[in-house]
Amino acid sequence: MASADFFTRLVALNAVGPNNLRPPSSEGNGGVSMVYECPRCYATHDFESSAVECCPPSQKWRCDSCQEVHYDEDEAENCCPELVSPAITYQPMQCPICMREADSFEVAADCCLHTHPTMTALGRWRVAELVESGTPWAEAIAQNINH
């Protein structure tokens, strides 16, 4: 059985890892960035010079949250409106241990944390509630490690 410290270290490591969903960008023009798409190969490039080297570019807009490319700026800005709220820190709806996506924060908290040696079902429920309100996974788990 894994120790409580194992879970704490693993969640902290996963929080900074490349497997997390991207939070909305606080820079730029509302969470979108302009990209150039090659009309022949459909590859997107961040810089016009890179696109010109590949194929003649056409200007499009990419949502910084989900990386979907749109034909106009307004469409890209409205792509992920649920992630743009600046008052709440975005936390991924995925298990903090195995990084599997979930349908809710409760399901994400139950996924692997049910094996935590000192956390009960009530503790997992509290973790899910805190994470849903914007608390980072590692902090929410630390607050409920013995509940």
Rank of each mutant, 00 (worst) to 15 (best):
C111L: 06
S49W: 00
P56E: 14
E73H: 12
Y36F: 15
R124S: 02
G134E: 14
T89H: 13
P57W: 06
P56S: 14
T118R: 14
G134S: 08
E82S: 13
T118N: 14
S26W: 00
E53A: 14
F47R: 08
I97S: 04
A43G: 13
L113T: 05
G134M: 07
C63M: 10
A109K: 00
C63F: 12
I145H: 04
S25G: 12
L83G: 05
R124Y: 06
M119L: 02
V84W: 09
S58G: 15
D103F: 08
G134Y: 07
C55V: 05
G30A: 06
F47K: 03
S50P: 02
C98E: 09
R126V: 04
A43D: 15
P39W: 09
M99S: 11
V69D: 08
E132Q: 15
F47Q: 11
D46G: 14
C54G: 03
V107A: 09
S26L: 05
Y36T: 04
A140W: 00
I141C: 11
H70A: 07
T44P: 01
D103M: 07
S25P: 04
H114Q: 12
P117H: 09
P57E: 11
C79E: 07
V35S: 00
V131R: 01
F47Y: 07
F105D: 00
G123R: 02
D72E: 13
I88M: 10
L122D: 15
D72V: 11
L122I: 12
C79Q: 06
E106M: 12
P86K: 11
L130K: 03
C79K: 04
A108C: 07
N144T: 08
V32W: 08
L113A: 02
M93V: 00
H114V: 10
A121T: 08
N144D: 11
P86R: 07
L113H: 05
A108N: 01
C111P: 06
H45G: 04
A140S: 10
M93K: 06
P92L: 02
C54S: 03
T115M: 14
P81W: 04
H116N: 06
N29V: 06
Y42C: 15
E27Y: 10
P86C: 03
P96C: 04
C38E: 10
V131S: 03
F47I: 05
I141R: 00
F105H: 01
E139F: 03
T135I: 05
T135K: 08
A102G: 01
W137Y: 05
A121M: 10
R100S: 13
G28M: 02
T89M: 09
C63W: 05
D74M: 14
E73Y: 08
P92Q: 01
V84H: 12
I145C: 09
A87Y: 13
S25T: 09
E132C: 10
V52L: 03
Q91D: 07
M119Q: 05
K60Q: 15
P136S: 03
D72C: 13
S49L: 02
C55E: 07
E129Q: 11
S33H: 13
V35K: 12
C38G: 15
H70I: 06
G31S: 12
R126W: 08
L122S: 06
C41I: 10
R100K: 14
I145P: 02
C79A: 12
A109W: 00
H45I: 08
A102M: 01
S58K: 13
